[in-house]
Write a protein that binds this DNA or RNA. Structure first.
Lengths: 193, 193
DNA sequence: GTCATTTCTTAACTTAAGTGAACGTATTTA
DNA sequence: TAAATACGTTCACTTAAGTTAAGAAATGAC
């Protein structure tokens, strides 16, 4: 499981054995059962998450309805806004599947950054990369229709459509579950004709 | 103009005069006329932008139509994806108004980071903050209707509605200009009744 | 294994966005 | 200054998403 992490990091910077041991000794690998809620609306947490295996999602509850806005799978990181804002969380985070996470806190990061400045570089680079990915994601969302978004998702993250319930996918696509059903039926109909 | 920048930075870290001089000596302040195109689709640029005064926008041209996806105003930064990906740009960047920018390149940043590690911390922190802001922005977009998005924009960035042409605002809201016109008429009608 | 709950789909109806066209009003520019 | 272009609004029509309701299928709890 640790190898997964180190292979990932190796794409960006090289770590000495000392540095690897520093990470391992933090003892930050955690397992969670499917359905576990990691963060609730209103809570003030300092935990950041990095998914080693499995899938977690963020969702809001707006006038009684769950609105899923993001999924995080293998090698993806999520720092909840409440960690940065120091304000109560506006959303929930829970496990879509049995999941293994790395959980970090700002204190731990500060300590690691001062011991090994290389980690701060890593975090800056990962952050910049993420920012760009997310911007392009947002752009695609804005410039396309729900149907195009669904087809796009089919191409780019086909796994999500398998591992995630439809009604969660629907709000992720910005529509209602009924509309997603209809839209899929429409696509199948087109493929036939 | 420099004071604007240093006041902004002061919110995050404190700079010595040496460090301030290092920034000034980079000579990175640039002025542009309204309408100037800073980046075109297909170009490979290494320039990052930080808006000191004015407004710039990113837009795609999709089947002949301009789709504006973002506006950057005072104290906002934009690193185009082509800088990070090292791939040709998929979008255009141009000035909505007469604009004063700071233009940076990865080389300059690397140099500054090694001379003054503090700058890398600053960039990491700004990056994390931006990431969170953008995520929340995206969440709001996904969980609301075009009308709600417009009302939301009226509250959060009322200046944009004044300084930006309607048809650019429309694609920013994910709809056609005609729909924005109609939607505004609808809102006025409601306010009356 | 049975019951209850959740999830997914379908359908009929409502509402709002997309489309194509027309028109008046800036704004450019020749 | 006149013509051309770009911009914003309105309208009629089309298409697709929201809403409400019902029922089938899958999942989970006991």
């Amino acid at each position: 499981m640790q190898d997964l992490l180190f292979d990932f990091i190796a794409k960006y910077i090289s770590l000495t054995d000392d540095e690897k041991n520093a990470i391992v000794s933090l003892d930050i690998f955690r397992s969670f059962k499917k359905g576990t809620t990691l963060l609730k609306e209103g809570q003030r947490s300092n935990d950041g998450y990095f998914v080693l295996k499995g899938c977690i999602r963020t969702y809001y509850i707006i006038s009684g309805e769950e609105k899923t806005t993001a999924f995080y799978t293998e090698m993806e990181a999520l720092t909840p806004h409440c960690v940065i804002n120091k304000a109560p969380s506006e959303y929930y985070i829970s496990c879509v599947e049995d999941t293994i996470l790395i959980i970090s806190t700002p204190d731990m990061e500060t300590e690691m950054f001062s011991k090994f400045p290389k980690f701060e570089s890593l975090c800056r680079i990962l952050g910049e990369e993420l920012l760009v990915k997310q911007q392009i994601n947002f752009d695609e969302f804005k410039t396309s229709s729900p149907e195009q978004r669904y087809l796009n998702l089919l191409q780019k993250r086909p796994d999500l459509i398998q591992r995630v319930p439809q009604h969660q996918l629907a709000s992720y696509l910005g529509i209602k579950p009924q509309s997603l059903s209809r839209l899929r039926a429409r696509i199948l109909e087109k493929d036939k004709g």
